[in-house]
């Protein structure tokens, strides 16, 4: 029986692991992979104390910091698939069939990319459907691609694609660009860009590889097709909460509701922090700080201390 099981190995999970070990809480950390979402970022410039670091190096540092702690146990390369409470004990099951028990749980499982949920998206994933322009743009040299979504991530994807692709469509469902106005003004000047507004993507076309997409032009009500070699989907992210069932309360975005003073969830014994929680700003430093808050509060809880 553990005192604490931490689910996740991003900045939140790593920070929690270090603090829990130093507080001598009997802890197990379970993570699919260390590092978190900014792993793929070529350059993180706001991790406080470090002017510039690649996402990969940041991930390695986080992992090393956790592994250097005495007493913490780690299961990585596995996924939590279920958390069940009975008589104030939490049982946690993993994909590889392991199971563990704990008095408390800290959920720091972050978020993942939102999918369109349309035909062709799954079938052509990796076959022209791509999720990371910084990573995959060089594969589309001389090709025609579309970016779906005009938030910051979408605009940045367009910018990442310019040096490689011969033509880039930016497809936006509404009539407003949600992303940063300065970035938008900058990319608009590039003759490779064609912007299609009020377009709802209906299907990604292709048999073995992407050959195009079908969209509904909301203004004319007509279905139209584009010929393409690649589609980058940038329509936001959704929290990784499925393994919790209805153990904890969530908000309308499926983010776990927490008390922002302690990070406690609606379920006694369960805390959450970072991108999986209903925190307003989703950033590495904030995830780490909020997870630390949670661990300090868990330490109090395990010792029967109540602070007002």
């Amino acid at each position: 029986m553990y005192d604490l099981i931490i689910i996740g190995g991003g900045p939140a999970g790593a920070a929690a692991g270090v603090y829990a070990a130093r507080k001598k809480i009997k802890t197990l950390l379970i993570a699919k992979e260390f590092g978190g979402q900014s792993l793929v970022s070529p350059d993180v410039q706001n991790w406080i104390g470090t002017k510039s670091i690649s996402g990969l190096e940041l991930a390695q540092n986080l992992e090393e910091h956790v592994r250097s702690q005495e007493g913490i146990e780690i299961v990585d390369g596995d996924l939590v698939e279920g958390v069940v409470k009975s008589d104030s004990v939490f049982s946690i099951k993993t994909k590889e069939g392991k199971s563990f028990e704990s008095k408390t749980v800290l959920v720091v499982s972050g978020s993942r990319r939102r999918r369109l949920g349309i035909p062709g998206e799954d079938k052509l994933d990796g076959k022209g459907v791509a999720w990371c322009a910084t990573c995959d743009a060089p594969l589309f040299g001389g090709k025609t691609v579309a970016v779906i979504g005009a938030g910051n991530a979408g605009l940045e994807a367009v910018r990442d694609l310019f040096p490689y692709a011969s033509k880039v469509y930016l497809i936006n469902r509404s009539d407003k660009i949600k992303g940063d106005a300065v970035t938008f003004e900058e990319i608009k000047k590039n003759p490779k860009l064609e912007i299609i507004m009020m377009a709802e993507t209906k299907e990604i076309l292709g048999d073995k590889m992407v050959t195009g997409l079908k969209y509904l032009d909301a203004e004319s009500g007509q279905e139209k097709e584009l010929k393409l070699d690649g589609v980058f989907i940038e329509i936001g992210s959704i929290p990784n909460v499925e393994f919790l069932g209805d153990l904890v309360e969530k908000n309308q975005y499926n983010e776990i509701k927490v008390d922002h003073k302690t990070q406690q969830t609606s379920q006694p014994g369960v805390w959450a922090a970072g991108d999986v929680s209903d925190v307003l700003y989703k950033q590495n430093n904030i995830s780490a700080g909020d997870a630390i808050k949670a661990v300090l509060n868990i330490h109090d809880y395990l010792n029967g201390v109540e602070r007002k």
Partner: peptide, 21 residues
């Protein structure tokens, strides 16, 4: 490096039936 070497890119697609690296 399939970003620069087109024939290697083709070879990769042929072997793996996809474009991811």
């Amino acid at each position: 490096n399939v970003a620069e070497d087109d024939s290697a890119r083709e070879e990769m697609v042929h072997k793996s039936h996809q474009l991811g690296v």
